[in-house]
C-alpha cells in the first residue's frame, strides 16, 4: 500500500491518495489534481465537512465517477455553504494570513456538495484485502471522522502533533470530543501513524504523550 500527500492551496490542507494494486482511494480531495489513467478510482473518504477538505468532491464525482463516503452529519453540513464554512473561508484566510492575503481565484464561496454513502456509527469495510475502520470523531466539527487502515490513521483536523484540537468552530463540541472521540483515539494502537488534515504525519504515541 502506498500513500501520497498533496498539499492544497486552501490553508495548505492535505489530500491523500492511498493506492493498492491498481486501485486508489482519495481522502479529502482538493480542487487540483490528476489521476493517472492506469489507476482505478475506488472511492472518496471525507474526514469532515469544512471547505478546505471537500473542495474537490464534485470534481471527483464528475471526472472519475467516484462514490463519496462520509458521516451523515458531514453530508448534511457540506450541503450548505454556511455550515461547510465556504462562505466564511475568504474572511477566515484574511484573518489568519493578513487582510491583503490572496485567496485562490477559483475559490467558491457558495460551494456545496453531497455524499453518496453515509454512516452514523463506526463501521468496518473491506478494500482490496484491507480492513478499513471508519471512526466517528465528533468535536472539531459535528461531522468529523477518521479512517484507519493497517496502522495508518487519516485524522482530518481531529488531531495534530503537539497541538490542541480546535473545538470552537461553529458546531464544534468539547463534550463530544471528550466523551466520544478522545477515548476512541486513545484506544488505537500507539504505533499508528497519523496523517493529519494539515501539516506532516506523526506517530500517534507522540500525540498521546502531549495529552
Amino acid at each position: 500500500m502506498k500513500i501520497r500527500r498533496i498539499r492544497s492551496d486552501l490553508l495548505a490542507s492535505n489530500m491523500y491518495l492511498v493506492a493498492e494494486d491498481s486501485g486508489v482511494l482519495l481522502i479529502d480531495p482538493c480542487r487540483a489534481f490528476d489521476l493517472p489513467e492506469t489507476v482505478r478510482p475506488d472511492f472518496v473518504f471525507l474526514t469532515h465537512e469544512h471547505y478546505d477538505h471537500i473542495s474537490g468532491v464534485n470534481l471527483c464525482r464528475d471526472r472519475y465517477g467516484m462514490p463519496v463516503i462520509c458521516t451523515a452529519r458531514c453530508d448534511e453540513r457540506m450541503g450548505n455553504s454556511r455550515t461547510n464554512m465556504a462562505r466564511y473561508f475568504e474572511a477566515f484566510c484574511r484573518m489568519q494570513v493578513g487582510l491583503d492575503a490572496e485567496v485562490p481565484a477559483d475559490f467558491e464561496p457558495n460551494y456545496v456538495c453531497r455524499a453518496d454513502e453515509t454512516f452514523e456509527a463506526d463501521k468496518e469495510i473491506s478494500w482490496r484485502g484491507h480492513r478499513v475502520r471508519l471512526l466517528l470523531l465528533p468535536g472539531h466539527s459535528p461531522g468529523s471522522s477518521g479512517l484507519w487502515i493497517d496502522g495508518h490513521l487519516f485524522s482530518g483536523d481531529s488531531i495534530f502533533a503537539r497541538q490542541e484540537t480546535v473545538l470552537r468552530f461553529p458546531g464544534g463540541s468539547a463534550v463530544d470530543w471528550e466523551k466520544i472521540s478522545l477515548p476512541k483515539l486513545c484506544a488505537l494502537p500507539p504505533d499508528t501513524i497519523v496523517y493529519p488534515g494539515h501539516f506532516d504525519p506523526f506517530p500517534l504515541k507522540e500525540w498521546m504523550a502531549y495529552l
Binding site: 454556511r82 466564511y88 477566515f92 489568519q96 470552537r168 461553529p170
Partner: peptide, 9 residues
C-alpha cells in the same frame, strides 16, 4: 479568528 467565525455564524 476561530471565535470570530463562530460569532459571525
Amino acid at each position: 479568528s476561530v471565535a470570530h467565525m463562530s460569532l459571525i455564524s
